[in-house]
Design a protein around this nucleic acid. Sequence first.
DNA 1: GTTAACATTAACGTCAAGGTTAATGTAAAA
DNA 2: TTTTACATTAACCTTGACGTTAATGTTAAC
Lengths: 140, 140
Amino acid sequence: MEKKYYKIEDVSIKTGLTKRAIRYYEDLNLIAPKRTDSGYRLYTDEDIDKIQKIISLKESLGFSLAEIKAALELDKNVKNILSGESADITTIDNYIDMIKEQIKLINEKSNKLLTAKQRFEELLLKLNKLKDQFKEADTI
Amino acid sequence: MEKKYYKIEDVSIKTGLTKRAIRYYEDLNLIAPKRTDSGYRLYTDEDIDKIQKIISLKESLGFSLAEIKAALELDKNVKNILSGESADITTIDNYIDMIKEQIKLINEKSNKLLTAKQRFEELLLKLNKLKDQFKEADTI
DNA sequence: GTTAACATTAACGTCAAGGTTAATGTAAAA
DNA sequence: TTTTACATTAACCTTGACGTTAATGTTAAC
């Protein structure tokens, strides 16, 4: 099957990022699209997936682009090892520790999110009660 | 009971923020400490709690300081209403909608965090299996 | 009473993450 | 074939969130 290629404007529409932002991510070596002979950028579906992943990490985790780069590289290195690339046990242990660290970070954020959510839900509950009182008063 | 007051350096130590950042938050009207006659800032425990809340919102939700200000004001307005401040039903409905919006946002972030976490946990599992294979090979 | 360790404001600097503009090249459509 | 709608790089601009420095005031310790 032939690979489909997208030009930057399509990618911009698909992802919601501006063209400037997409080029900027390339400057930071977060993505590396192919080029036509005349220099136009050509993006595959995998490139677009990666951009979506970047957006998700940015928005949900509040990661900086530098942190995202590190996380993506960790992911890639681990996948290379899993698909057969040679590695010694020390390296593997290192990656295990790094992944555990990421998971720990995510758990901390999750807990904080949960706390914030609960505070808002309490307020919501109380406001709804207040509203009910209003309605009762109207019908008396 | 007498209220205890802290000077900016103590607050800096307690919160981990720099004095510059603490003053900056005041510029943005996120906090409003009292002052001594000579102009020194005086922070109460409640001020410090609020700063901790700001830090938490910043780090977990990735909120900007402007967004944090809006969230804190929403929280304060709702609490004022709940403690007796007069309000009509339209206002209450408005606040209910705003809180629901916040909760929705938080849920979206939670889901993304969960996805990211699962991806890392999968990698961790696979890496641990690989490590076990290494150990078996050693003992043969 | 003076020195050290705090505090203040004001102003300029910095860094990340893009926005914007300019000058120019390429591809597709009329 | 010449617009029109794309694309490119380069360079400077902007905004948020502070850092840093300077000039100066205050308080506590000696």
